[in-house]
């Protein structure tokens, strides 16, 4: 199994989810995060105070997948998230030691296979 972690633009989240569901990647977690990826700085002004916003709002998506789903998930994220401008984000694919489905205690590949789909 792998853990696919992607950091994307918040405004691309809907299209990324659409692409992931189309690729039949189900089961994911998202969180709102802030980060910096070398994008052009945002300058904001509040009365006399001018500030450079070094951190931009991003969304982090985490998906546990079995090995043969990694490429599909990565391609779906790219298809949904790419705008071609600096700040589109990153995808990290990490090895996973163990996955346990809490409801059934199923482990590993069975645990990351959605209900109703035969494992393997």
């Amino acid at each position: 199994m792998k853990l696919v972690v992607a950091v994307i633009r918040p405004e691309r989240l809907s299209s990324v989810l659409e692409q992931l569901f189309r690729a039949e990647v189900k089961g994911l977690t998202i969180s709102r995060v802030q980060g910096h990826g070398g994008e052009i700085e945002r300058v904001e002004t509040y009365r006399g105070t001018t500030v450079k916003m070094e951190l931009s709002d991003k969304v982090r998506i985490e998906i546990g997948v079995s090995d043969h789903f990694v490429d599909a998930a990565v391609e779906a994220i790219i298809a949904g998230a790419r705008t071609g401008e600096v700040g589109d984000g990153k995808i990290f694919v990490l090895p996973v030691d163990k996955v346990v489905r809490i409801r059934t205690s199923e482990e590993d590949r069975a645990a990351v296979t959605p209900v109703g789909v035969p494992a393997g």
Partner: peptide
């Protein structure tokens, strides 16, 4: 289209309604 995606608060006004101020460096 890019400005519309980012939102008009920042792109038209240079401000945010609900800024948390994290990562803001004073100029």
């Amino acid at each position: 289209a890019r400005e519309e995606g980012q939102g008009l608060d920042f792109t038209q006004h240079g401000e945010e309604a609900y800024s948390r101020g994290e990562g803001a460096i004073l100029l």
